[in-house]
Each structure stands twice: as C-alpha cells, then as structure tokens.
Design a protein around this nucleic acid. Structure first.
Lengths: 347, 347
DNA sequence: GATGCTTGCTCATACGTATGTGCAGTGCGC
DNA sequence: GCGCACTGCACATACGTATGAGCAAGCATC
C-alpha cells in the first residue's frame, strides 16, 4: 500500500494487470460471487486481493449501479428542511427507525436535502433530473409533499415509499401510514364504553390526508356505536368559538375528541371559565402525539414512529427487489396513551 | 405524456427512435452542449424535446457520472450522528452555510448518514467501498473524525474538505478552519491594551487540534506582548483547583482566558467565594461560542460558522474542478463578542 | 485413446451517456 | 460546373463493472 496520493483511481483492469489475471477474474473475487468464487483457487484469489491492497482499489459505485441497477444505497427525502428545528422532533423518531432498520439489513443511507426551488420547499426534480436515482429507492417524508413530484416519480417507475398517506389521482402511491381510521374508532369505542353517549369533535383547519382518516374513523364509529354528535367539528367546521363552548357547557355532551393539543387546551380554558372541568364533567382525548411534559396528562393517540420508519424500509426494499410487486398502503396500528383526562360519563 | 407507470426507464436511444434521430443528437440537445446545439436546427430540437416529454425521459445519473466523472452532487458526511440532538445546535449553522452556498452555485446536496460500525461512529468505508463516491466531493464534519478514513480518502484522491483542522501524518488534509491562533492572539492583545500584564489561562482536558491552535495563539501573544502567565493551564495542566483559586485571588493576575464557559463559571464562583469579582478584580474572556442567554454576558470568541460552511463549499468545488490544485488549509477570521466580563486592569 | 466432466480462467458484451470524428448534402463563389 | 465551406446530423468509442458463454488443460472413465 503506497502512501502516495493518486493521480487516477485504479480500476479492476489495473488490479488485474498487477495480479496477472483478467479483469473479470478480479470482478469475481471482489464481488464475492459465491458460485464462481469457488472456481478461483485460493492462490489466485490471494494474489488478486494483494493487488487490490497494493493499489488501494476502491470500486466505482456509479459503474456498479449502471451495470447492476443497484447500489445498496437507500435515500431519505424530506419535502421540508430537516436542519431547521421546528418540525424536527416530529420526524426524529421516523429517522431513527429508518436508520436502524437500514443498517440491520446492510443498506447505506443518504439523505437528500437540497432545495431546488427558491421557496424553501424540497423538490425531487431539478431541471428535469431526478437526483434520487443515485439511490436504489427512497423513503419520502414531510407534510409539504409535492404531489406533482410524487406523481412523476410514480410514473417514472422509481422505487419509493411515502410515510403518511398521500393520494394522487391516477397513481397509487405506496405509503406506510399510521392507522388513524382504526384508532379513532377505538377511541370513540373507549368513550362509549365509559358510558358517553353524546360526544363532540374538535377539528383543525387543515385538509390533509391524515386528518381525513381520523375524521372518517371517528364518524364511522359514531354511527356504528349509535352515539350522538352535534358539534361543528363533526359537521366539518373547524375551530372552537364561544357560542359552541356555551352550548357545550349547557348541553348533554360528556366527551370531546380533539385533533390537537392546542385545541384541547383552549377547550379546557373555555370549560373552566364556564364552571366545568375535565374530566369531571367532560372527558377529552387528543389525537396527536404530545410530549410527556404536557399538563394535564392528556389521554392521547400515540404514533409508533420508529416502528413506522422500520416498516418503511422493509416495504421499500421489497419494492426495490421487485418493482412489479404492487404494494398496497401499509396500515400500522396506533395505540392510546392513558391520561388523566377521561372518566366515566356523569350519570 | 402517458400516465401509465413504466416498466423500464426510457433512455436517450428510445427518445432518439421516437424523434427519428440518433442517440447522440438527443444527448446534444438534452445536455445543452452550447457549441453543438447551435448546429441542431430548431425544428429537430423541438421534435426531440417533445419525444422527451412524451416518454417522460429522465437522465440516468450513474451513467452520467461514469462518463463525466461529475454529478453536480456534493456530499456532507458527519462522523457522528446528525439526527441525535446533542451536538446539533453546534453543527446547525455550518450546515446552513453549506446548503445555502451549494444552492447558489447550482450543486445538489446529499447527506451521508449510515453507521458502518456498531459503535455509532460514522465511517466512510463499508467493506472496502467508499459510499461518498456517488458525489463529486464531500464536506466532512464532526469532532469524532476517523483519521484512518481521512487518510484513506486522501490517499484515494477523493475530493473532500474537512471543517476544522485535522492533521494526518503523511497526508495534508484540506481543511477550512476557524483562525483560533489569530483570534486568541487578538484576545490577549485586547487584554494587554486594557492594561493587564499578569494573565492566566484555563485549559480543558482535551487534546484536539482546535485547542492546540488556541493555546499556541495565546502563548505566542503572551510572549510577543511581554505578558506574564504563571497559571497551571499555561503550563499545560487542565482544570481549576482550590489551590490555584487561592493563589489567583491573592496574586497579581487581573485577567483570565478560559477555554470553556463551564470553566469560566466555576472560576467566577471561586472568585466570588474569595471576595473577588468579575470584571472588577479579574477580567474574563471565554474561548467558545456561547448562547446569547448566558449570564453574565461573557466576552467571548465567535466562530463564523455559516460563513465557514459557505467557504467549505467553494473550496470543495475548487478541488473538484481541479484535483491537482494543492489546497492549503483555509483560515477564517473569528471575532470577539463584547460582553460584561472585561474591564481595565485595576491599577 | 476417445469421451466427458471439472477446473480455472478469458472473452465479449451490456448498462446509459457524452463527445470527437466523419460524412452526405446544400449553398455559394468563381 | 467545380471546389469549398458550412450545416446537420450519424458513427464509434470510452467511462468501470458484472456476468453468460466459451475454451484449454487436466483428470477420470470405459
């Protein structure tokens, strides 16, 4: 092994010349092709490996990928900045799972992170070029998903999977998604089991797919369980106003499902201002992962993010291995974290 | 543009067939080769671009890189986890500068982030393969730099630059480094200008390159300015003990340079316990970027991290463009942030 | 001693792109 | 009516790797 800095990277042909064999012999030894490797005797094999060391040969990944169509490199692309802190704590656990699983199965990870447009949004395509294709496949994340990019990736046949459900007309985007539909149904069921018959729903002013699933799951359960909900949120109106708080304080409702901690907090303030409390008069469940430091200890939905990250990698690898395999969206069960904000219905 | 999902990615040859030209004509139109493009009439050009749209052609980056040896992709590799929060705030600004500058000059960024070894350290090589070589060059960061990796990259001739000085015997690693030597000299100069003649130095128990530079810069200035320093830190002993605090409280020293805020804080406590205060009796300057919320407002060293990130990209691109250009380490001037912890020497 | 199997390789080719060279056709000058 | 420059492409090749096919030598078998 020379300590000289090289002028040109050596290729297999150089190794071959030094070892006195052909380039293909080198390739077989390097690649560890198991069937053919046995046909190369230990002696030749050693000569080749010595030449590799001597020249400091390192395989050219681009050539490999061109030939093999595979790299053992998986990408992670976020449609919004990863570096900025704001959303980071939310995505952190996904990334942990992704990283963990990728390493377990011997894939390397690259994180794509350039901003093509000037608007801070991450885009996949930059003047007609798909940067992702240096990796065998990519996990996509982020609320600000660019659907045009998604559609194009799908149409292009590039192997990818999206964390969180995203619908694109005409394409069926492979996703791994928290089972919001099921868990909001379970939450309604739990409230019903506590004796609550009149319930309400607090809706955020956002029309993203994850919210749709929660709303459908809740509505489905309300119907199935014969509950009554006359809240604005249930009818499709976001927010929480004084008129509705007045009505809630007077009315028969004994339980509320809130799409966010923020809404739940103003609900709590509003109720207390009207002489009512949680959970004595009204039970509250929050549909969002919230930190352990929250007060009160909201009963809430927990998304198994790390697990989802791991599942995303497995699903992606399946797609990479067989691009024709139709991958349906994968639902991952969520759980309910007990808190201090639910109780039996007052009789 | 068909909305069908494709079986196989179209190549330039497919586009050429559809447009009734040769593959090379397609390449010239796509690549925008300016000299040759003029020789292709608008009509043919349009036919080709239409075929590109029709087939949804996207260039193959691996083939391009194999042929061109360039991607317009730059890598960022951290020798320690990026995702975990601990060190993040420190590296955050570097990354901002890197990202900003890369975008300005039309390069895309990929962040390498797999852990080869089980010890959580990021390594560049994974069973003899250098993952970085999917990018044209890479910016390396992190305190836990693996010097063996660095040496191998250098020997391999791979274009890279390290943020922060790192010395490897036999190789000269291209670095962009905060000019600790210069700025600690300036700090000593500033103290001298305030009339301090007897000074002291508080040393961390770490032997990393950045600390060496600060120590050399300080020592050099002390000698040059004719100051006196009889502190353990100046002699090479780390830490701060009661014996020394007693001596400092009694002795002639009127100014202290501290390698960290942590040390400065215990210094402050020790002095106050002995009836002395900062800056009335002793001036203190801290050699580390500290948050604005610190109290007292330490006079301290400021590292222009974003600027360093930007410079790293420019230096890297220079190396990528001409691998033979010997890139000396780049010193980036630091500045002193005024605080409430220095004053003129008591007379 | 002809046949066939095994060993230990080499040869040739394909992956998709970019580019130097070449060549047929057209228009112009004389 | 011929030479010449210019236009508008096509042809061929190289980048570095992996792999199916093939081939010579050696050995065993009948």
């Amino acid at each position: 092994m020379t300590t000289q800095r090289r002028e040109r990277a050596p290729r297999q042909a150089d190794v071959a010349r030094l070892a006195g064999v052909s380039q293909s012999a080198v390739s077989r030894v390097i690649g560890g092709d198991p069937e053919a490797a046995t046909r190369i005797p230990e002696d030749t094999r050693r000569r080749i490996l010595e030449a590799v060391k001597e020249l400091g040969y390192v395989p050219n990944l681009s050539a490999r990928k061109l030939r093999n169509k595979t790299n053992r490199l998986l990408g992670v692309h976020t449609f919004e900045p990863v570096f900025p802190h704001a959303r980071e704590s939310f995505y952190f656990e996904f990334l942990l799972g992704i990283e963990e699983r990728a390493e377990e199965i011997g894939y390397d990870l690259v994180l794509f992170t350039s901003t093509g447009a000037g608007d801070g949004r991450r885009r996949v395509y930059r003047d007609g070029t798909n940067r992702l294709n240096v990796a065998d496949g990519t996990v996509l994340l982020g609320v600000a998903t660019d659907k045009a990019d998604l559609a194009r990736l799908w149409q292009e046949g590039y192997p990818f999977i999206h964390i969180g459900r995203r619908d694109v007309p005409g394409a069926d985007i492979p996703c791994v998604v928290p089972d919001y539909f099921g868990i909001t149904g379970d939450i309604a069921g739990r409230l019903a089991a506590l004796g609550h018959r009149h319930v309400a729903y607090l809706r955020e002013d956002l029309e993203l797919e994850p919210y749709e699933d929660r709303r459908r799951g809740y509505a489905d359960a309300v119907g199935r369980l014969g509950l009554t909900d006359r809240s604005p949120g249930f009818r499709g109106e976001p927010g929480l106003d004084d008129a509705w708080l007045d009505e809630l304080a007077r009315g028969p409702e004994t339980a509320v499902v809130s799409e966010s901690e923020r809404l739940a907090e103003s609900l709590l303030r509003g109720l207390r201002a009207r002489g009512r409390d949680v959970p004595a008069d009204v039970s509250v469940v929050v549909l969002e992962g919230i930190g352990p430091e929250a007060s009160p200890r909201w009963e809430h939905l927990d998304i198994p993010r790390k697990e989802i990250g791991r599942i995303a990698i497995d699903a992606l690898v399946a797609i990479v291995d067989d691009p024709d395999a139709r991958t349906e969206s994968l639902d991952v069960p969520c759980s309910i974290v007990d808190g201090d904000t639910t109780a039996s219905a007052r009789s």
